[in-house]
Amino acid sequence: MLVQLTYASRTAGILGAIDVKDILTASKRNNALVGVTGALCLSNGIFLQQLEGDKTEVNALYHRLLRDERHRDPAILDFSEITQRRFGSWSMGLLSTLEENRQLFQKYSVTRDFDPYAMSIPSLRAFFSEVVDNVRWLG
């Protein structure tokens, strides 16, 4: 069964550019091995990630993330069965609040600062639908 899981977590500390690059590199390598695709957003000290793939693999990946000391306050925001992948051509993309992406983060935020914990499921889905084609992705 093909599923999509969206979760948020707060960074456990300050992440530098090298830390973020390491996360992206490891995610691309590990996800490709198990057929998981997705996108990782980092804004305001919050990770927002959408994963897609086989239910068992996505579940196992999320449970590994729960043990990762760089994450705190993890929360599943959306989980659903899907018919096709949104991020089928990449094992992981990274979106950060670069100046050109800032308006998109604000468009879906209910607060002044981007806070996915406060977003509705329809807003989360619309956010990822829009970012896949309309933002500058890193990596």
Score class of each variant (00 low, 15 high):
residue 3 V to H: 13
residue 3 V to L: 13
residue 5 L to E: 07
residue 5 L to V: 10
residue 6 T to Q: 08
residue 8 A to F: 03
residue 11 T to I: 04
residue 11 T to W: 04
residue 11 T to S: 15
residue 13 G to K: 02
residue 14 I to F: 00
residue 17 A to F: 01
residue 20 V to F: 00
residue 21 K to I: 00
residue 22 D to N: 13
residue 29 R to N: 10
residue 31 N to I: 09
residue 32 A to N: 08
residue 33 L to S: 08
residue 34 V to Q: 07
residue 35 G to N: 05
residue 36 V to L: 15
residue 38 G to N: 07
residue 40 L to E: 00
residue 41 C to H: 02
residue 41 C to K: 06
residue 44 N to S: 13
residue 44 N to L: 07
residue 45 G to D: 11
residue 46 I to S: 04
residue 47 F to V: 07
residue 48 L to M: 14
residue 49 Q to I: 03
residue 50 Q to D: 09
residue 50 Q to C: 08
residue 50 Q to R: 12
residue 53 G to H: 03
residue 53 G to V: 12
residue 53 G to N: 07
residue 55 K to R: 10
residue 57 E to G: 01
residue 57 E to Y: 09
residue 57 E to N: 15
residue 58 V to G: 11
residue 62 Y to I: 01
residue 63 H to C: 03
residue 63 H to Y: 13
residue 67 R to Y: 05
residue 69 E to L: 07
residue 72 R to E: 11
residue 72 R to T: 15
residue 73 D to L: 10
residue 73 D to V: 11
residue 74 P to V: 04
residue 75 A to Q: 10
residue 77 L to T: 12
residue 77 L to N: 11
residue 80 S to W: 04
residue 80 S to L: 06
residue 81 E to F: 04
residue 82 I to P: 09
residue 82 I to K: 10
residue 84 Q to Y: 10
residue 84 Q to N: 11
residue 85 R to Q: 14
residue 87 F to I: 04
residue 87 F to G: 11
residue 88 G to Q: 02
residue 89 S to P: 01
residue 90 W to I: 03
residue 90 W to C: 02
residue 90 W to L: 02
residue 92 M to D: 04
residue 93 G to R: 13
residue 97 T to C: 08
residue 99 E to H: 07
residue 100 E to R: 12
residue 103 Q to N: 04
residue 104 L to C: 02
residue 105 F to D: 02
residue 106 Q to T: 05
residue 108 Y to E: 00
residue 108 Y to S: 00
residue 108 Y to A: 10
residue 110 V to C: 13
residue 113 D to P: 12
residue 116 P to Q: 13
residue 116 P to Y: 12
residue 117 Y to R: 09
residue 123 S to P: 10
residue 124 L to Y: 07
residue 125 R to T: 01
residue 125 R to K: 13
residue 126 A to K: 09
residue 127 F to S: 01
residue 128 F to I: 05
residue 129 S to L: 06
residue 129 S to K: 08
residue 130 E to M: 09
residue 131 V to T: 11
residue 133 D to P: 07
residue 134 N to D: 06
residue 136 R to V: 15
residue 137 W to P: 00
residue 139 G to E: 11
